[in-house]
């Protein structure tokens, strides 16, 4: 009892003796709170509210002439718009950073351009990003993945595979599960495009495992679609099962576009290819 009283007294004295933190100005605090809240919502997948919070943060940072904060939140906003599938809106958000484009700005621009099937523009943005990404470059793995995507979209499967494998190598020691899954998915796609369906299946499975662990429905559904495509190429009897799983996941998550694609693939699958996995 006595010891407890002594400890409590020491703690109180220490608290009274510590230097109080200087408080942020109210508008800066409001901007930081909006940004922080937006980031939390982005992590939770609440992209619509995250977009609003980042827009608010951009506005407040701009009002206090904080260029760094404004630029950073524009990147957040673009990333959120891309996650929502709003590539045009992402480009609009990034237009504010066009005056002094950083590697992140260029990479997000390329990402939006790829989503809009503007392959040439994406290649140019990626080349510019690569020019700024000197060693050591923390974004190199993501840059390689984007180059792999661009190469795959351009029908250059070997080049896409090389970029994806290089990215996977860079990600091996890191803690970026998202990008690792993306790398596996790209490897699977590139192998499938290069008619190496047997090699593609385990890569797609690896991507699916990670995406399941991260609990990302859209990616899981697309992984199942990819697996279905690979199985169909291989002649596996469980092709329809893969498409069925994709359809179920898409329906449960309310992903109409993927559900439609899965239903079409399922409809086109031969009746003999329905054995369970």
């Amino acid at each position: 009892m006595r010891a407890k009283s002594i400890v409590l007294t020491v703690l109180i004295l220490a608290g009274c003796g510590s230097t109080p933190k200087p408080a942020d100005p109210p508008r800066l605090k409001a901007a930081l709170e909006a940004e922080s809240d937006g980031a939390k919502r982005y992590e939770r997948g609440d992209y619509i509210v995250a977009t609003r919070r980042f827009e608010e943060a951009v506005r407040i940072y701009a009002s206090i002439d904080d260029a760094t904060g404004t630029s950073r939140n524009r990147l957040h906003l673009a990333r959120t718009e891309l996650a929502r599938g709003q590539a045009e809106a992402a480009l609009l958000a990034l237009a504010g950073n066009a005056g002094d484009p950083t590697v992140d700005t260029l990479m997000l621009t390329a990402q939006a351009q790829l989503a809009l099937d503007r392959l040439d523009a994406a290649q140019r943005s990626l080349a510019a990003a690569a020019g700024q990404c000197a060693t050591p470059c923390p974004q190199l793995a993501s840059l390689n993945l984007l180059r792999a995507r661009a190469a795959l979209a351009g029908g250059q499967a070997p080049e896409a595979l090389a970029h994806a494998e290089a990215a996977l190598k860079l990600l091996r020691d890191g803690n970026e599960a998202n990008e690792t899954a993306n790398a596996w998915r790209l490897i699977a796609s590139a192998r499938l495009a290069a008619s190496d369906a047997a090699g593609a299946l385990p890569a797609a499975g690896a991507a699916l495992d990670i995406d399941r662990r991260l609990a990302l429905p859209e990616k899981i559904a697309r992984d199942w679609l990819l697996i279905g495509d690979i199985r169909r190429k291989v002649g596996d009897g469980a092709t329809a099962v893969a498409y069925r799983r994709a359809l179920d996941v898409a329906n449960a998550a309310g992903l109409a576009e993927i559900a439609r694609a899965a239903a079409l693939s399922l409809g086109a699958t031969a009746p003999g290819q329905t054995a369970p996995r």
């Binding site: 995507r149 991507a207 990819l226």
Partner: peptide, 9 residues
């Protein structure tokens, strides 16, 4: 780099 998994298919 691929928030929607679009590169897969």
């Amino acid at each position: 780099s691929d928030p929607r998994g679009e590169a897969g298919r």
